[in-house]
Amino acid sequence: METPSVWLILTDAPVLWLVLTIAVYMAAGWLNQRCGRTPLLHPVVVSLSVIILVLKLSQVSYDTYIEGAAFLKFLMGPAIVALAIPLYDNLARVRDLLLPLLVGCVSGALIAALSAVGVAWALGAGNVTLLSLAPKSVTSPIAIGVADQIGGAGSLAAGLVLITGALGCLIAPLLFRWLKINDPAVRGFTLGVSAHAMGTAFAFEYGAVAGAFSGLAMGLTGAFTAFVLPWLMLMLGVTAG
């Protein structure tokens, strides 16, 4: 196939990757809506699969892509800060539930990391994989930082985080029904602990209270994991060396 030279010029323009990302995401959102919002076709998972395919087919490296898409990645920081707003709106509820929130966050974070590492270790996964799996339940900016710090691969961790998020959204409606969990605060918190920002985005569908608690859970779990995971992996003797 004759590659038009315009394509070559365009692949040099970082804005192309920004345009591609937003356009694919919008299309994925539309598709998801058409399919009754099934978490099987989560817009984020669909988008990243399509974009990886496009990049592979056009032989464009991730470094080139991220040059353009870094703008979106940057916005993640301010968005995390903005989670303080729904949290503030639901402060009274947070105060009532302070003890269960702390216990739920600590045990959820530990179970998430230990069970993932345990299962993968039993199945013979390498140490880099284990160290990238460990932070898979926390929001990607934290997971990337933690994985790099303990000797895993940050970008692998980012991907595993997203798959975890999609899984969490997928099983959420089933498990809530099965466990008879109807309290939006508990629903949101559980989603935030086990499925980070994607769980939080999903929790907003159960209302603002669920969204706020999910954001809180995501923040608490992320902070706790960032502090504890490096020690935990050292204790378990899982190192990159």
Partner: peptide
């Protein structure tokens, strides 16, 4: 927020 997660996810490649 979900859109902002996409670029990191592409890092899977």
């Amino acid at each position: 927020l979900p859109l902002m997660l996409v670029p990191s996810g592409v890092g899977l490649m």
